[in-house]
């Protein structure tokens, strides 16, 4: 039985997860869950973000794990291999996901970091593609990958296999437009489990709220709900809200459908869209621009077009 579970997670971390993501994506597309928002620009961006990191980032992480760490820590290989499985599991789960919580939260709370994470929020729809839709700089510096790679080198590779598999399933499920958590809020037998679940891990309801285009309706909460695998961090730090509802709109209000290459490669490539956060002289954070100034800008724009 254990060998069977081990095999599942080995395949999940290899070819299994990309296949699951593709199947979910096809299901979402077939059921029209992207509505009419999946334009050519969005399609190219989603596909590039899904494919390129698998070709570029994975080999780089392998380099760190196989060449750099043995040079930096020559005598440390497998020194913690004695750690019992479940303790290793807990150490990795906390170490990996809490680090990602902070990486994510700081990209929202430190204005100079926002534009590296903006691509993940720009889509006016939710779907499995959102899980990998990131600017390349954000992906390369994905801080917890290096922490986890180091822990693998130190001897915690076996628990990592299971933590990363479970985490990938939870985060993909939380981004998906398939609202799998709904029965936990409506079925009276499932409600107690739902209460625990929504506080413990990210669900479509809590994570969709993070992708809302507004927090005026009391459902959207794009300035919080930062948790990835565990929602527990948001509960502990008071950065989360739970409403069991889904926002009416997704994305960012000041989205200008910036070119896919600018969203993927900013600041290497910049947007030509006037007033965009990704344009050479664009604001650092679009929704921080006072409304009056925005209206004046739009007025000037209209005049110049006319």
């Amino acid at each position: 039985m254990l060998q069977y579970i081990e095999q599942i997670f080995t395949h999940l971390n290899g070819w299994g997860l990309p296949v699951i993501m593709l199947l979910i994506g096809i299901t979402e597309f077939a059921f029209g869950l992207y509505e009419n928002h999946w334009t050519k620009n969005e399609r190219i961006l989603d596909i590039v973000c899904f494919v390129v990191p698998k070709i570029v980032v994975k080999p780089f992480i392998a380099y760190v794990g196989l060449l750099l760490l043995p040079t930096l820590l020559p005598n440390a290989k497998n020194i913690f291999a004695w750690v019992p499985f479940w303790w290793g599991f807990a150490i990795i789960a906390v170490g990996d996901d809490l680090t990602q919580y902070w990486y994510h939260r700081l990209h929202h709370q430190l204005p100079w970091l926002w534009r590296f994470h903006r691509t993940h929020h720009s889509a006016p729809y939710m779907g499995m593609a959102m899980a990998s839709r990131q600017n390349i700089i954000y992906t390369i510096f994905f801080s917890q990958i290096y922490l986890t790679t180091t822990l693998v080198y130190l001897g915690l590779g076996y628990p990592v296999l299971f933590v990363t598999g479970i985490k990938a399933l939870i985060t993909t499920g939380a981004h998906s437009s398939i609202k799998w958590d709904k029965p936990f809020y409506t079925n009276k037998w499932l409600k107690p489990a739902g209460w625990v679940l929504e506080r413990f891990i990210s669900t479509p309801a809590t994570h969709h709220a993070h992708h809302a285009d507004s927090d005026d309706d009391g459902v959207g909460h794009y300035k919080g709900n930062f948790g990835n695998m565990f929602f527990l961090w948001d509960v502990i730090f008071g950065t989360g809200i739970i409403t069991r509802q889904y926002p009416s709109g997704y994305g960012i209000k000041h989205y200008k459908q910036e070119e896919w290459y600018a969203q993927f490669l900013w600041p290497i490539f910049k947007s030509r869209k006037e007033g965009s956060e990704l344009a050479p002289n664009g604001p650092m954070v679009g929704d921080a621009v006072p409304l009056e100034k925005e209206i004046v800008n739009r007025g000037l724009l209209t005049e110049s077009i006319v």
């Binding site: 906390v94 809490l98 502990i236």
Partner: peptide, 23 residues
Amino acid sequence: TQQKIIRDVLISLVLYALPVILM
């Protein structure tokens, strides 16, 4: 926000250490 970040980072240090201490 800055103050909350500093407070939460300090709490996080305890959370990181928690599984190791319990083990």
